[in-house]
Design a protein around this nucleic acid. Structure first.
Length: 154
DNA sequence: GCCAACGTTGGC
DNA sequence: GCCAACGTTGGC
């Protein structure tokens, strides 16, 4: 069982959007970075823990707890000419991009980025490192436990 | 909306 | 296979 932090722009898919979707689940489409793709394709298993993170918004931070609800499968948007994530080099026979499904477990009171930075225990979190832009990062089990125990309130 | 950081592209 | 140019991310 692994743990992940996954960034979403709330203007695109927010925690409230996720809560309103059927099964409170969403296909994590649109990842066009190989490292992030490889995490989904090669490492994610059903049941893995996910910190749902709001990025590029007024109060960036962790907005909910979720879980991986499907292993990776080809991202449908790569084949759709009219989609902004269309990739002309991808074919159904040779897909380039994959996504898992992510299901909401619990919306929480947002844990702002500032707050995360204030905790020494979390200093090494990948997503807090300077210059990090990766939209999916592994979370250390100790960091996951610390966050759930000390920072989460519903 | 600015801009630092970083990933990708493509000419050579 | 190098690397300059360009595009994107995401906090501020």
């Amino acid at each position: 069982m692994r743990y992940w932090l996954m960034k979403s722009e709330p203007a695109d898919v927010s925690i409230d959007d996720l809560a309103s979707f059927p099964e409170r689940s969403v296909a994590w489409y649109g990842v066009r970075n190989y490292q992030a793709r490889n995490f989904m394709r090669d490492q994610m298993k059903v049941g893995d823990g996910v910190l749902f993170y709001h990025s590029n918004c007024k109060v960036p931070g962790i907005a909910g707890i979720a879980k991986v609800s499907s292993v990776a499968y080809p991202d449908a948007t790569q084949f759709d000419k009219h989609n902004k994530y269309f990739d002309p080099k991808a074919t159904p026979e040779q897909p380039r991009w994959f996504n898992v499904d992510v299901q909401l477990v619990q919306k929480i009171e947002i844990i702002p980025l500032d707050e995360l930075r204030a905790h020494e225990t979390l200093a090494n979190m990948r997503t807090l490192q300077r210059g990090n832009r990766l939209s999916i990062t592994p979370v250390d089990p100790a960091e996951w436990k610390y966050i759930l125990k000390n920072l989460v309130s519903a």
